[in-house]
Every structure is written in C-alpha cells, then in structure tokens.
Computed example of a mutant assay.
Amino acid sequence: MLAVVTDSTCDLHPATARALGLHIVPLQVVLGERTFLDWQDIDPDAVYDHQRQGGRVTTQPAAQEAFEAVYRQLLATHDAVLSLHLSGQLSATAEHARQAARALNAEDRVRVVDSGLASIALAEAAIAAREAVQAGGDLQAALAAAQATGRDLLVEFTVPTLEYLRRGGRLSRTQELLGNMLGVRPILGFQDGRLQAVRRVRAASAARDILARLEERFGRDPVAVTIGHAGRDPGRIAELKAAIDASRLKVVRGRLQLLGPVIGAHVGPGTYGLLARRVEA
C-alpha cells in the first residue's frame, strides 16, 4: 500500500484532502506574536482581515518533527510514502521532509519530491498521484502521474492590488506606484520553481488574458479547470465562472479552491488564479 503526503500549500481544505485520501503536513502562519498551523488553526479570511488592517503576516516551513510524526504513523500501515511538496525555491518544506526521512532511516520507503509548484497546481499533482494509487499503481506510477500533471497543466495568477506584493518584497514602492498609475497588473506563473511575473496587462482584462493563454495552450482538448481565489467573494467567483463558460475551453470538470493562509500571506486578498490541464472526456 502507498500513502500520498503533501503539504498545506496545496490549499485543499483539510476535509477535502481527507476525502481524497491525501495526508497533509501544515506550514505555519505568524500573525504578530501568534503562530498558527496553516488551514488547521486559522481560516484564510482571518489572514486577509489582518492584512487589510495593515497587519504583518509571515510564514514558516513545515517542521521536520511534523513530517517525522506523519511518516512514522503511515509507515506502520503502508509499504511506502510518496511525499510531494511545494517548490524548494519558495520554502524549505521539502528539505525538512527529506531530513525527516533520513532521521527515521526511511529513505528507502519515503520518496520526497520537490514539485516546483504550489497552491492549486500542487493540489492537481497530488490528486493525480492519489488517483494513480487508487487505480492500482505503485510508487513509480504515482510519481509519474504527478510529474506528468505538473508538466501538462498551465496555471496563472493575478492580483487586484500591488500592495501585498510590495509588502512581501516582490515589488518596490516605485513599481507599485507606477503600476497603479498605469492601471496594470502582473500575470504570475511558475518558472523554474518560482512564482514570477510573466507579463503585465490592464487590470480589467486580466481574467480574459489568462483565459486566452489557456485557450491557446489547450485548444478544444477536454480539460479540468480550477479557480483559486484568495478570500470568499461570491461576486468575483461568479464572474470568473461566467468568463470560463464563455471561453472556448472544453471544460469537462471544474473545481473551486480558496487560497490558504500561507499562500494568501504572500499575495493578499482578492488574488485569483485559473488552472487547466488535459483530461479524458
């Protein structure tokens, strides 16, 4: 039997992860003097409310000890563990997972993988691995499914305000002011494990621009589409769903995810992303 472990930056709600058969190791969110376990001790909207009030939010990687506890428990009932994590360019979480496997002398049974992804993209890879296990696949089959999904998917994000990227050190104050003056926003995508600006567009056309890239990539192939949104905003989410319905994408499956506390701490409320990947019709 094979267990699939990932971390909380996959942004799957804990109940959803359990239903999927995924095991989640949480990162940590720090608000002022208080530290919370991502998704477990704190709701995403609490982070966004804190940010809107001018509060500082920082994050810490999942602890080695947390991985040791999860691996020890799973190895008592499973033959092996595939542990799939957010990009090592963004966090030391994957390295802490490797250290935990070494500390338990379990490197032959625990395969730790740096996905090069985060958030809804990491969720897609983890779900693909779990589906491979449910289909009877072994560790290599699950790993191949996760890696193939990571290569095939396309995900891009954008932000309604530049304030939180500037607060997090990703933009200078001058870049923030200039972007606001011109009414432009970055489109963010994963490149070499980093979330970087791949282009800049007018704020009002950002969703349409992302959808155009998805259409260009996938054409009329059947796709699964995921909306990731930072905060509960029914109006904005309805607009994004309507834009997807009006696009040329052949959507056969869809999912909505809230971006979690750790991811939200770095991008701020109102950030959203659209992801598509090929699936069988």
Rank of each mutant, 00 (worst) to 15 (best):
A144D: 11
E65A: 15
A144H: 12
F190C: 12
S8V: 11
V198G: 03
V184G: 03
G270C: 00
A63S: 08
H266M: 04
V57R: 15
A141Y: 03
R232N: 12
A118Q: 12
A238M: 06
A76I: 00
S247D: 11
I127V: 10
A243L: 09
D152Q: 12
P160V: 01
S205T: 15
V184N: 04
P44T: 13
Q175I: 09
A15L: 07
S205P: 01
H266L: 13
G270Q: 00
V29G: 04
A206D: 07
G169N: 04
R173M: 12
H50C: 05
L90F: 14
S8G: 11
R18C: 13
L12P: 00
G21E: 03
T93G: 04
F157Q: 08
L249C: 14
D221Q: 15
N105K: 08
L154N: 11
A142H: 10
E33A: 09
D233M: 08
A126S: 15
L90Y: 00
A281E: 13
I127T: 08
A101K: 01
R98C: 05
M181Y: 14
V267Q: 07
L37F: 03
H266R: 05
R56G: 03
C10Y: 09
T271D: 12
V110A: 00
P186N: 00
L240M: 00
V70C: 15
E68T: 07
R220I: 14
V262G: 06
I263K: 09
S205V: 09
D38Y: 01
G137A: 03
